[in-house]
């Protein structure tokens, strides 16, 4: 078997989106250039911001972003507009898929499985919807996914709502799906801390991708 190792970064503070994006791009570039043989997993939370994929439809942003009162970033990932904020776990996977499988669909399905396994651990039933990438609890969306890729090295990842202010999603059409309602883990388990969920997410990333975490 190929030895898959990944650097794990778990900042304690709430991070700014653009700083972490720069870091991801730096790692992606290093892996592409062959300067780095480890993948990168980043697990953290963001200050309130909105991001939209390159193919995203600006109709789905319902606030005036000309004034950019709200932080809006157009980013190099797939998918429509979404929202990040404290209380939502964001996971970035900078992976060299040449060491796994050169198949983005496979990668998306793996990510969905990690989220479902995590929810399942806390006895929440999450499921996927055909044609709507992401993870759902009944008809409400609990996790969003968006990936970018260059020479089979991925960037970005997923966001799982734990205990966050869902009203922030009212300013957009989440993932471009009209009428899409959002939910969060705390609606099922009010006492759960993001810290506990992060620990389990990490565990399932490790097992689903069959990798070992190392310190840098």
């Amino acid at each position: 078997m190929i030895d898959r190792t990944s650097i794990l970064k778990q900042p304690n503070k709430i991070s700014y989106f653009n700083e972490v994006l720069k870091m991801q791009e730096y790692y992606q570039k290093s892996i592409i250039q062959g300067d780095l043989s480890h993948d990168l997993v980043w697990i953290g939370e963001h200050q309130l911001c909105y991001t939209i994929g390159r193919g995203g439809n600006y109709k789905n942003i319902l606030f005036s972003f000309n004034q950019n009162k709200f932080n809006l970033y157009k980013v190099n990932r797939g998918g429509e507009v979404t929202c990040h904020m404290p209380g939502q776990i964001v996971v970035y996977l900078v992976f060299n898929l040449k060491n796994y499988k050169k198949d983005l669909n496979w990668f998306l399905r793996k990510i969905e499985q990690i989220i479902i396994n995590t929810l399942n651990y806390f006895e929440i039933k999450g499921s996927t919807k055909r044609g709507y990438t992401g993870v759902w609890c009944d008809d409400k969306k609990i996790a969003s996914i968006g990936i970018g890729c260059k020479r089979w090295v991925t960037i970005h990842g997923f966001a799982l709502n734990i205990d966050c202010d869902l009203s922030n999603f009212n300013k957009i059409v989440p993932c471009g799906i009209e009428g899409c309602l959002m939910t969060k883990v705390s609606e099922f388990h009010p006492n759960l801390e993001t810290f506990d969920v992060k620990r389990i997410v990490k565990k399932f990333i490790e097992s689903e991708f069959n990798l070992n975490f190392v310190s840098e």
Partner: peptide, 10 residues
């Protein structure tokens, strides 16, 4: 940039 599902590829 090409997109399939929620993934973008340069």
């Amino acid at each position: 940039v090409v997109e399939s599902d929620k993934a973008d590829m340069d």
